[in-house]
Amino acid sequence: MSKSEYSTEDFVLDPDFRKWVLENHPESKIYWEDFLNQYPEKVKEIFQAREILVHLSREKKELSQDQVESLFANISREIALLQKAEVAESSKVVSLDSWATIQRYNLEKERMRRRRNRIRWAASLALILGFSTIFYWFKGESVNSSPELVAESVTFEAPAGVKSSISLEDGSKVHLNSGSRITYPKNFSEDKRLIRLEGEAFFEVAKDPNRPFMVNSGHLTTTALGTSFNIKAYPNQFVAVSLVTGKVRVEDQNNQANQALLSPGEGIQADLEKHLWKQSKFDLEEILAWMNKTLVFKNTPLKEAILQMENWYGVKVQVAGEIPKDLSVSGKFKDETLQNILEGLSFSARFSYKIQGKQVQLTFKP
């Protein structure tokens, strides 16, 4: 595959790209700078891939005195260059590593907004460059829909086609399915640990009796002290909470009558529009299949299966013809290619398919 057709996941898996981002390798740096010159439209995927790699980097090391002096020399040089640019009413990013290179392609539209804060930005940039292989880097973001997350918040995202994990400051771990994100305060409060979820995630909660761990997902709030559970809350779908260990309390913020204290193996399915509130047992293998690289369809409506495949593989599916009413599909696919899955489903669902890069077309005959 040509690198010009790379998705975010392809960049993450490319060894040379990893050397550029994590090691600032000179030859890799030259190659990827030339690549961005030729394919500036790939800057979004490259930015996302770099963010994922920095999040996943666990390596920790101490800086030598020479490295510290070099780091602050970079800061001084950046400030001097930006002060000079201020006089000339122009700006320039010094291409020190992958981050600076990527920023060059976003700079023009950001130039006016950053103009008033150039010196402070230069210092922050140099610090990020110097410590990018030592610490996690997070994207700050304000969230209007949750007042308690407005002040200083952090968003961690797994783009479509990518699965990712993160360790929180309290020791809890969150595993995100494709097309999912969590938002939480930069610093948890003294009385609770509040997180907002869009999509699907598995939580391994560190015990802290004085600070309940709370997850807002759609209209549901799930509260735990020390446990592990899965929440599925994609837009326009019902919300499902599945408890694996410990105990959790699930509450419907729009209907106080809907509350449940779950034991391991129990789950809640809730749909606000359909007035659905169902507590029942669940199949653990099925619920956690996504963490084992297994895509499971169990009498799944085809429209819902299409959404799952779009998230799983980072593609866009278009349908030609009319999908038969009440058409559902079943199957278990472990670490399979999209082509193999479509091939398997096409016989029972009776459609033909065509894959062109990230575009997929399903055709149903009359």
Score class of each variant (00 low, 15 high):
Lys3Ala: 00
Glu5Leu: 02
Tyr6Phe: 13
Lys19Asp: 14
Val21Asp: 12
Glu23Cys: 14
Asn24His: 08
Lys29Trp: 14
Tyr31Met: 09
Trp32Met: 13
Trp32Leu: 12
Asp34Tyr: 14
Asn37Glu: 14
Glu51Trp: 13
Ile52Trp: 06
Leu53Ala: 11
Ser57Ile: 09
Glu59Asp: 13
Val68Thr: 10
Val68Ile: 10
Glu69Ala: 13
Phe72Val: 06
Leu82Val: 08
Ala88Asn: 08
Ser90Met: 00
Ala100Thr: 10
Thr101Gln: 06
Ile102Leu: 05
Tyr105Val: 02
Leu107Met: 07
Glu108His: 01
Arg120Cys: 08
Ala126Tyr: 02
Leu127Asp: 05
Gly130Trp: 01
Lys139Thr: 02
Leu149Asp: 03
Lys163Asn: 09
Asp170Cys: 00
Val174Cys: 09
Ser189Asn: 05
Asp191Met: 08
Leu194Cys: 04
Leu197Ala: 03
Phe202Trp: 12
Val205Trp: 01
Pro209Ala: 11
Met214Ser: 06
Met214Phe: 00
Gly226His: 10
Asn236Met: 07
Phe238Ser: 15
Phe238Lys: 13
Ser242Lys: 13
Thr245Lys: 11
Asn254Cys: 08
Asn254Glu: 12
Gln259Glu: 09
Leu261Arg: 10
Gln269Ser: 12
Ala270Glu: 13
Glu273Trp: 12
Phe282His: 07
Asp283Met: 15
Asp283Cys: 11
Leu284Ser: 14
Met291Asp: 07
Lys293His: 05
Phe297Gly: 04
Lys298Pro: 01
Thr300Phe: 09
Pro301Phe: 10
Gln308Lys: 08
Gln308Gly: 04
Met309Ile: 02
Trp312Glu: 00
Gly314Arg: 04
Val329Phe: 10
Asp335Met: 13
Leu345Tyr: 07
Phe351His: 12
Leu362Phe: 13
Pro366Arg: 15
